[in-house]
């Protein structure tokens, strides 16, 4: 880009403008993100080292790492971490697995393929609030269609229903989340599958090669980077997901669906402990950063291996 700069200094009204031009384009958005994301984030970092009450937030007291030590010592938070791990891993595995199967199903020729590819995205397009509402209704203890179906095949979910059952609430929320996510995975993988050399697949199948073998040897290497990328996205999204869980169970029953984000919100707005809430939030942000940096390192190492 030095040539550009040199040209810019030679001619004042260079086509690309002066060397300040990119900053002029950048400034509005960067300033905006700074005010609405960076400053609030720094405030949260500060809050996490203080004792601050929601009702009297101007009087906060610096307590160093106390929030963090207290949070990590509490058994509730250990449950939160465990639930978060189960939730995130199950979401990623469930959504990527089911999405891959659906992508392979849709990646062939059959009548009505265009319509099928469009309709399959409906769960992803539906607003989260609406999804929470319909899921809650379908899981209703007396009249929910899922409860009725389970009862019809002889499965007893208890008087209070699935979402109030400590053993069933998390699986129900997981299935709802996977329902929401699998179309995204399927559509993205479907487009990745377009770069799989069809001649190779057809030739292998002509030779009577096993389908699973063809998938492993021909298809998988092509789509693997995309799968990794989607898994990373799903991890970050699942660490952030709030409204679906909050509206379906509020983290209950007995804290079995309380993920980090739910924990942080109820600490802030139910217990009014802004400092502890911020500390929990920071744990979540650090986990997300570790996941992102870790995945980058793994990708880079893999690239080096192939190079």
């Amino acid at each position: 880009m030095t040539t550009l700069n040199a040209r810019a200094s030679r001619r004042r009204r260079s086509p690309l403008g002066s060397r300040w031009t990119p900053y002029v384009f950048l400034l509005p958005a960067a300033a905006y993100i700074f005010v609405f994301q960076a400053i609030p984030l720094l405030q949260e970092v500060y809050l996490s080292f203080t004792r601050t009450n929601l009702l009297n937030p101007t009087r906060s007291e610096w307590i160093g790492f106390d929030n963090y030590t207290r949070v990590f010592a509490s058994s509730d938070f250990q449950q939160t971490l465990g639930t978060t791990a189960v939730y995130v891993i199950a979401c990623v595995v469930g959504a990527v697995g089911s999405g891959l199967v659906v992508a392979l199903l849709l990646n062939g020729s059959f009548p009505g393929r265009g319509i099928a590819r469009a309709l399959v995205t409906v769960p992803w397009a539906a607003p989260g609030i609406a999804t929470a509402l319909i899921a809650t209704w379908m899981l209703n203890a007396q009249y929910g269609i899922i409860t009725r179906a389970l009862r019809a095949i002889g499965v007893d979910v208890g008087e209070s229903g699935i979402l109030d059952n400590p053993d069933l609430a998390l699986p129900a929320i997981l299935l709802t989340t996977i329902w929401q996510l699998f179309p995204f995975v399927a559509v993205v993988l479907l487009s990745a599958l377009q770069s799989v050399p069809t001649e190779l697949v057809e030739a292998a199948e002509m030779d009577g090669a096993n389908r699973l073998w063809v998938f492993r040897v021909v298809t998988w290497p092509v789509i693997r980077p995309t799968v990794g990328l989607i898994a990373l996205l799903m991890t970050i999204w699942s660490l952030r997901r709030f409204e679906l869980i909050w509206l379906m169970t509020r983290g209950g029953p007995l804290g079995t669906t309380r993920t980090l984000v739910i924990d942080l919100y109820s600490q802030a707005f139910d217990s009014k402990q802004l400092g502890a809430a911020a500390a929990i939030g920071m744990v979540g942000v650090v986990i997300a950063m570790i996941v992102v940096v870790g995945s980058r390192l793994v990708t880079r190492a893999a690239e080096k291996d192939t190079a």
């Binding site: 993100i33 994301q37 970050i236 952030r240 802030a268 809430a277």
Partner: peptide, 16 residues
């Protein structure tokens, strides 16, 4: 900065 924003949950930013 843009990547960072992808990792911040709304529920965290709501307090500040």
């Amino acid at each position: 900065l843009l990547l960072m924003t992808q990792m911040l949950p709304e529920a965290l930013m709501v307090v500040p």
